[in-house]
Write a protein that binds this DNA or RNA. Structure first.
Lengths: 250, 250
DNA sequence: CGTTATATTGATGAGAATCAATTGTGGTGG
DNA sequence: CCACCACAATTGATTCTCATCAATATAACG
């Protein structure tokens, strides 16, 4: 347990809001100029979340919008029969609906995580004063949409094997911002969560991983570590389909 | 064939850009004031598209963004082995990526359709001058994201029966803006397209529809018409799962 | 009225869910 | 340090759903 503070403890937002190393193109604070950043810092709050904890998405009746600086989050739908993930959030991406009603957001931390949170209304004011912020938000939304579409393609028609491989490559891709050229994934998900995400059962995930390992395409040194041994072969497995991924908006 | 003009024929953009009846909250021209609307009208072009035609997403190297006024579009990914839809576009929603590279968008009309198209760069200029436009774009993007997440939930874990029912209800919901309280759907999709959208085969779609009809939940008066006879029962079929749909953004 | 797309229906098989049992992995306290 | 426990992961056996192949049937259309 890397964190010693209480979970989701607010921390004074004194420093610049983003670490240069762990963010990619979609960060909120990284797409804007110095003055906007100051304004954001003024209303932002730095939060630490412990793995497994839910993100509190509203404070005092006001929804919040968060910009993840490190860690991985999952967007989940929790109905009676267990939770289903519908997406992941990686560093640099944002979570929470700048317009939506508060309270019906469900986000859970898959790893210990850190994010800057902004009260919805305050953020709105800032984005009125600084159009660039508005622009950054739009970019983020479009990015998330693109990722959601990506998942749709994977979930839609692929076999279990293809889904698992796609997941691994996807995870490697999105995580790479933090750990460059990593052929060793440190998966923060347990099998069940992967299953949720891919629409497969725990057992199927396990079997597929073992199968891939037996085929020599990956290695499973520890329970939560996966090595991409033969990345080329893995990409060939999902290859035929990845040709024209589109960055469309509707 | 309702349209006589050539497909995708540009039409002079003389009138106000939206018909009041067929749009809902996410229209581009309907969320902004009069002056913004004038600016948009100046750069917009009205286009008619024939059912089945692809939307040309770039003109002269510049991508376009379109705001659908009526009809239904599908966002498709077309790889070697046939097309797969990843989403529908209903009146009032927009299509095309305001930031993305041109040319790799794939959108096809499912019905005859009409939309206002804007050159990407011109739209960007307008949204710089009028922050409200930027805001409207963000709203649209978030709306689309929400819909994409919805699909993810449906496609993710549901059985064929549930998916088909969910599709019908979803379609009824989204189409209702045009035809209020419609328990009679005029499906512009052929079975194959539904299959694409739901990740099911043509035959399965057919079987499920027939099954629902035999159970008395729907009626199939004609090939492209579906009546929701027992909407309550239909909603019960997908019900358990729809509880906490979330409008989240990450 | 033939011709071509589209839809329905049936038979079969592959793949994944499910049920059930076992094996690992940490964590705790005796 | 080891026994013990709760939890995660693996493995096997079985069932069931859906894709696939194949054969009509029904429109749609010139």
């Amino acid at each position: 347990m890397p964190f010693e503070g209480p979970s989701a403890a607010p921390v004074s937002a004194a420093r610049p809001a983003a670490r240069a190393s762990a963010v990619h193109f979609c960060g909120l604070c990284d797409q804007v100029g110095e003055s906007e950043r100051r304004a954001l810092r003024r209303i932002g709050l730095r939060q630490l979340i412990r793995s497994g904890d839910p993100l509190i998405c509203s404070t005092a009746g006001d929804a919040i919008v968060g910009s993840l600086t490190w860690g991985v989050l999952a967007v989940v739908r929790s109905d009676g029969s267990g939770a289903q993930s519908v997406g992941l959030v990686f560093p640099g991406e944002i979570v929470g609906d700048p317009f939506g009603s508060p309270a019906n957001a469900a986000v859970r931390a898959l790893t210990d995580a850190q994010l800057c949170t902004f009260p919805r209304s305050a953020l709105e004011q800032v984005s009125r004063d600084y159009p660039v912020v508005q622009r950054a938000l739009l970019r983020c939304a479009l990015h998330s949409l693109s990722e959601a579409r990506r998942w749709l393609l994977i979930i839609g028609r692929q076999s279990a094997r293809e889904r698992v491989v796609a997941f691994l490559l996807e995870f490697a891709r999105r995580q790479r911002a933090g750990a460059p050229s990593g052929d060793t994934l440190d998966l923060p998900l347990k099998r069940g969560s992967i299953g949720d995400l891919l629409g497969l059962s725990i057992e199927t995930i396990s079997r597929q991983l073992q199968g891939l390992a037996r085929a020599g395409l990956i290695a499973l040194p520890s329970r939560r570590t996966i090595e991409l041994v033969d990345r080329a072969a893995l990409e060939r497995l999902v290859g035929g389909r990845r040709s024209t991924i589109e960055r469309v908006m509707p």
